[in-house]
Write a protein that binds this DNA or RNA. Structure first.
Length: 609
RNA sequence: GGGCGUGUGGCGCAACUUGGAUAGCGCAUCGGGCUUCGGACCCGAGGGUUGCGGGUUCAAAUCCCGUCACGCCCGCCA
């Protein structure tokens, strides 16, 4: 019994009433559908503004139309006995529907209890294969809080799609060839001979040489890879501490070594998508014309894919990567285990030696990439569109930058380096643990009775909830004071409500399954409000999936928790006289919904805290 | 110059895609509530011309046009 069914029933009644009362008027199902909403409690459980919409057409005032429809419903006995809508009334141009509390409560609670951990899931994905790419941090620095936001979004969106029966592959792209890696090697002491030539020229030459060497799997490339792998291993320690896991990492050096770029460019040339200007500014490059005009130059704007020195640009490598993701180009990638993750699953990596595994070949890819990269992502989509009319299969989920009051977190400038504590994912977790510990001591609880596990989970919940509860599009200005504020709008708050549910259930001794069918009074109280909210889970998760927005789920689980908080204070469960079993079932279902929804955010619950 | 995003009580956010009845939540402020299932809780109060100006509509935070502010992007970089 999800909320959609109640809405649907109401819509059918409305459609039939319309047919009865105004046979000449035609309204699309969709129109009736959008007129239905959830009003304030005093106006019932569902409300339709249909009469307001018809007023103009019928040249009658909305109140009369509502009355006429209401009359048609009662006289035509349009409310079915087996249905869950018990009453409909007309008021101020609206038609309001009241749900039968007892029937609805029983059906909703039964469904939650029966489905358990899969409540809220759907099968809309039909086992479609998809990729979520995140966070693809360069292997030359620790994850800062901006990378963390990316990773948390990617992880949660993966969960949300898995809950929709999609086959999700979590991929991390490791750029071990970029300038940043070169800079590191440089810093670590590359031969600086050649100082007699112009410095920029020397640098450029070295860069070309480095790219060549990598193709040949030369010594420097091996060294770069070794350093990068060590760095990624360290970054993954951070990921693991946050419960973030991947399926496979794709290394840029392996994309180059497997000649994916060349093969992609060949394909583009064959299809006449790319051009090779013989003269002018782009002589010697391989370029693709874009749809827009370059205002400054007054000529066609082009994107360079292969530079005149023969080296592929970022966009070319990214295109090749996506051709692979979508199975548009063959691959000889070999994989080996990178490390066994704490969740028991191995994360694989592309490698020079290993075995072929069936990664990639996805129907679509969701890329969690900062909104600053919307332009290159758009170009990528356009080119993919031209190649195989498949551009729509790349979905860019842009998220707002995380910055500091004093400026950016730039890796290059070291903005992530703080004075006392860094703005890294590691330090944030450390600080949050201290904070939850402090809070526990204030409340007189034994803070580290479980070897710090409780504080660890609470700290993770606080951080994850804080980062996921707002629309990804919004940018975040990070401040320690606010980040460490454990207010009521938080992960720990939801966990607290969950723990309270657990506590009650521990004491009831009722077999929950038997609670069904025994609700006698199911009054229109806060408990019913709660049940109605619980019924929305699938609808909510589905919306979050459609919009790539975990914040919708955070908002929902917070609402459920708040309603439970009120329920808990005002309605006795253990000492209930009439509705004890129904209330126990409500508690059980609430606990399940909080568990499932927090799970989608990557947050683990605690039985006691 | 062009593109994208954001703008909602002092602060942080929700509602905008699909226009509906009194714009929700938290923090902060003020005032209440532990003999009852866990106080990391609950109840109440004050605080809003939804950046600004037009338009459409019976009805606009929501749709349209304009405008302002802030951020990001528009390189043979990555």
């Amino acid at each position: 019994m999800d909320s959609k069914k109640a809405t649907k029933e109401f819509e059918t009644v409305l459609a039939n009433a319309l047919k009865e009362a105004y046979p000449d008027i035609r309204r699309e199902k969709e129109e009736i559908h959008v007129s239905v909403s959830v009003p304030r409690a005093e106006y019932g459980d569902l409300s339709s503004s249909l009469p307001l919409g018809l007023a103009r057409k019928l040249k009658t005032n909305p109140g009369q139309i509502a009355e006429a429809l209401s009359k048609a419903i009662s006289e035509g006995s349009l409310l079915q006995k087996s249905g869950i809508i018990g009453k409909i009334s007309a008021e101020g141009g609206y038609l309001n529907a009241w749900i039968d509390e007892k029937k609805y409560s029983e059906r909703v609670l039964k469904e939650v209890i029966t489905k358990g951990q899969s409540y809220g899931n759907s099968d809309e994905g039909q086992n479609i294969r998809m990729i979520v790419e995140f966070p693809s941090v360069n292997p030359n620095k620790p994850w800062h809080i901006g990378h963390l936001r990316n990773a948390l979004l990617g992880d949660s969106i993966s969960n949300i799609f898995k809950a929709g029966a999609f086959l999700v592959e979590k991929i991390d792209y490791i750029d071990d060839l970029g300038l940043q890696m070169a800079e590191i090697l440089w810093g670590m002491g590359i031969d600086e001979s050649g100082k007699d030539v112009k410095y920029d020229r020397f640098l450029g030459e070295e860069y070309v040489k480095a790219n060549k060497k990598i193709k040949e799997a030369g010594a420097e490339a091996t060294r770069a890879r070794r350093i990068a792998e060590r760095s990624v291993m360290a970054q993954y320690e951070t990921a693991f501490s946050y419960g973030i896991y991947h399926d496979v990492m794709i290394w840029e050096s392996d994309i180059i070594r497997n000649r994916l770029v060349e093969r992609t460019m060949e394909l583009l040339r064959e299809q006449g998508i790319s051009q090779e200007p013989k003269k002018g500014k782009y002589a010697g490059c391989v370029v693709i014309e874009t749809e827009e005009k370059d205002v400054k130059e007054g000529e066609e704007k082009v994107k360079v894919f292969i530079r005149s020195n023969g080296v592929a640009t970022y966009i070319a490598k990214d295109l090749a990567f996506h051709m692979w993701k979508l199975g548009l180009i063959g691959t000889d990638f070999l994989y080996r285990s990178f490390v066994l993750q704490p969740n028991g699953q191995t994360v694989f990596t592309t490698s020079k030696t290993g075995e072929p595994i069936d990664f990639g070949n996805a129907n679509f890819s969701i890329n969690i990439i900062g909104s600053a990269q919307q332009y290159p992502q758009k170009v990528l989509k356009e080119v993919l569109d031209a190649v195989g009319k498949n551009g729509y299969r790349v979905i860019h989920v842009p998220y707002g930058e995380v910055s500091l009051k004093e400026g950016s977190l730039s890796g290059r400038k070291g903005g992530w380096l703080g004075e006392e504590r860094d703005y890294t994912a590691d330090d944030l977790l450390k600080e949050m643990k201290l904070k939850t510990m402090e809070k526990a001591n204030e409340a007189g609880k034994n803070a580290d009775g479980n070897g710090g596990e409780v504080q660890e989970k609470l700290a993770l919940a606080a951080i994850k909830f804080e980062f996921l509860r707002m629309d990804p599009a919004k940018k975040i200005v990070f401040e320690w004071e606010r980040a460490l504020d454990l207010s009521s709008n938080s992960g720990p708050y939801c966990m607290y409500m969950y723990a309270r549910c657990s506590r009650i259930l521990e004491k009831t001794g009722i077999v929950v399954e038997s609670a069904i069918g025994i609700g006698k009074h199911a009054k229109r109280d806060i408990g019913f409000e709660l049940v109605k909210e619980l019924s929305r889970a699938e609808e909510v998760v589905s919306k979050a999936r459609k919009e790539y927005r975990p914040d919708i789920i955070a908002e929902y689980v917070l609402r459920v928790s708040q309603l439970f908080g009120k329920f808990y204070e005002s309605v006795p469960v253990l000492n209930a006289e009439e509705d004890r079993k129904l209330r126990v079932a409500t508690v059980f279902a609430t606990r399940q919904v909080i568990y499932n929804m927090l799970g989608l955010l990557g947050i683990k619950t605690l039985e006691k805290m």
